[in-house]
Design a protein around this nucleic acid. Structure first.
Lengths: 208, 208
DNA sequence: CCTACCGATCGGTAGG
DNA sequence: CCTACCGATCGGTAGG
């Protein structure tokens, strides 16, 4: 019999990664050091390394948890809504809420990681890219449905809609984190609403 | 008589800071280390420290040069245009050009520095904040003129216009740096153009 | 501007 | 999981 149950190992891992996400959101994923995180958790460096094998694996696991948290707060609550404009509106609502009361002290983790690693090569850059590509694809899919159903006043390229919504979110995060002025959230919300302005030509389909 | 002329000292300082900006744009302003920069310049650590006094002063000087470069590329070319919408259009043109062919390998320096230091206290955070506040004020001033002259189709709050243009630029930078796909620049340009769409109600004043 | 050096911390390993 | 330790690098100083 193992000295600690599988469930306990898993719980410990989660506690560790939560602390890692919190710390890395402030000092960056590269600034995150094994020694400092071990200190914060009241354990030894070697104990921490033992759990993840290397700093890079710790960074990748930290990023993966942050992605999962984003998904849970921004995407999950919206999947009950009908695909297309209604779902995009729900996503944006969750998104602004996430930006205003982030799970992390240092603001949107994915934005920070993207800026930090966009000019470096390696597994972390690649993982960030994969996560953001996936998210862009989600937005684009919903935008395509909204456009083809005639739900949007501005029925342009779905990729443009996805791009602009993401840009507004990233810009809102930067502004709000730097100035801590809640007006940034209002402005972000208004700008998103403008992109998603409903078509006046016809109502969203209610059936079929 | 000094061993090196004042002009020579100044030129050396500029060479040093250009290298610092280049390096920091990739590895971050905090990741910039005295030893690594000294290596790159073929000089000793203590020689480099001697020029700036401390790492923090080096960081502040590096940031100041990056701000000056931004101003020269994005703002300066637009000041010949008439205030209001025309000047905003010129600024956005320069801005997209700057994002597409950045002076720095790692993309917009101010965006990187803002994300890196938004959750930390200290002189660097404050300097980033001052620079971005100044830039926001420039945008807002031009937007206020454009709105009050009836030049914009969407004549809302000038602060909203400034916020959204900045958000689009920040989002475009992140997207382009991560994916290196020039379509991000086209999308950014289109999104800015949409914010600055000219009023159909009346033409921009040509005199008075 | 240099060499030589300071104590602290880095990621990681040996050995238990 | 721990202590003890590795070589490398950190920011910075002493002394010239």
């Amino acid at each position: 019999m193992p000295r600690r149950s599988v469930a306990q190992v898993d719980a410990d891992r989660t506690v560790t990664l939560r602390a890692a996400v919190e710390l890395a959101s402030v000092i960056g994923l590269e600034g995150l050091t094994v020694g400092r995180l071990a200190d914060e958790l009241g354990m030894s460096k070697s104990g921490l390394v033992g759990r993840f094998g290397s700093k890079q694996n710790l960074q990748l696991a930290t990023l993966a948890l942050a992605v999962e948290m984003f998904r849970a707060v921004v995407y999950e609550p919206a999947i009950d809504k009908p695909a297309g404009r209604a779902r995009l509106v729900a996503i944006c609502e969750g998104w602004i809420g996430y930006l205003g009361e982030p799970c992390f002290a240092g603001g949107c983790f994915l934005t920070s990681a993207s800026v930090e690693f966009d000019a470096r090569e390696g597994p972390i850059h690649d993982a960030v890219r994969v996560a953001l590509d996936r998210w862009q694809r989600v937005l684009e899919t919903e935008a395509a449905i909204a456009v083809s159903s005639g739900e949007l006043a501005d029925d342009g390229d779905p990729a443009d809609v996805a791009f602009t919504l993401n840009a507004i979110a990233v810009g809102t995060n930067c502004d709000y984190q730097l100035r801590r002025d809640p007006r940034a959230l209002q402005r972000g919300r208004r700008a998103m609403a403008s992109v998603l302005a409903p078509s006046l030509r016809r109502r969203p389909a209610t059936a079929g």
